[in-house]
Amino acid sequence: MNTIPYRIHEIKTTQFATFPEKYINGGEVSISTTFHFALKKDIPNVLCSVEVNYSQDENLLLIAQVDCVFAIEKDAMSNLQQEGKISVTFLRYLGTIATGTLRGIIHAKTEGSVLNGLVLPPLNLNKVINQDFIFDKSTEVAK
């Protein structure tokens, strides 16, 4: 993979809710994580959206989502468009940054609550993000 010049353009917490009253101390907490990538053809930005759900005994304890927009250098984006894809390796890299960002948001927003000890664990993004992002030339937003 060639180096892709980028910078973090925007970070937005798009969803955040906690339900600490449903937390049972000592009970097992499950975490589910979802990643979504998108872009618009004429803007050299890549969106990486990460959502996590913490639940216990089928009760939602916390839901959080962050959108990280990465500005890609114009010539690099042109090269990616010519290739017709963004490599899974680069997507995992962006996912790592977005996951760390979300981990910090969760920590800051739960500070002082019983949910603060539920730290988002490290994720093996090799298992979660497992395919290239293929440009869809028929629509404005690639899938």
Score class of each variant (00 low, 15 high):
Met1Lys: 06
Met1Trp: 04
Met1Arg: 06
Asn2Trp: 03
Ile4Glu: 00
Pro5Trp: 00
Arg7Ala: 14
Ile8His: 08
Ile8Trp: 10
Ile11Ala: 12
Thr14His: 07
Thr14Asp: 05
Gln15Gly: 09
Gln15Ile: 10
Ala17Asp: 15
Thr18Trp: 08
Pro20Met: 03
Pro20Asn: 02
Lys22Thr: 09
Ile24Phe: 07
Asn25Lys: 15
Gly27Glu: 07
Val29Tyr: 03
Ser30Tyr: 08
Ile31Ser: 03
Ile31Leu: 13
Phe35Glu: 00
Phe35Val: 00
Phe35Asp: 01
Phe37Asn: 05
Ala38Lys: 08
Ala38Ile: 07
Leu39Glu: 04
Asp42Met: 05
Asn45His: 15
Leu47Ala: 14
Leu47Val: 14
Ser49Pro: 02
Ser49Val: 09
Ser49Leu: 12
Tyr54Lys: 02
Ser55Glu: 09
Glu58Cys: 08
Asn59Ile: 07
Leu62Lys: 03
Ile63Phe: 04
Ile63Trp: 05
Ala64Val: 01
Gln65Ser: 07
Gln65Asp: 01
Val66His: 04
Cys68Ile: 07
Ala71His: 06
Ile72Cys: 00
Glu73Ala: 11
Lys74Met: 06
Lys74Tyr: 02
Asp75Gln: 15
Asp75His: 12
Met77Tyr: 02
Ser78Asn: 15
Leu80Tyr: 01
Glu83Phe: 10
Ile86Pro: 06
Ser87Gln: 13
Leu91Trp: 00
Arg92Gly: 05
Tyr93Asn: 07
Leu94Cys: 04
Gly95Thr: 05
Thr96Asn: 14
Gly100Trp: 06
Gly100Val: 09
Gly104Cys: 12
Ile105Met: 09
Ile105Phe: 09
Ile106Asp: 01
Ile106Lys: 05
His107Val: 07
Thr110Tyr: 00
Val114Glu: 05
Asn116Cys: 12
Asn116Glu: 14
Asn116Ser: 14
Gly117Ala: 07
Asn124Arg: 11
Lys127Phe: 06
Val128Tyr: 12
Val128Glu: 15
Gln131Met: 09
Ile134Cys: 06
Phe135Lys: 12
Asp136Trp: 03
Thr139Gln: 14
Lys143Glu: 15
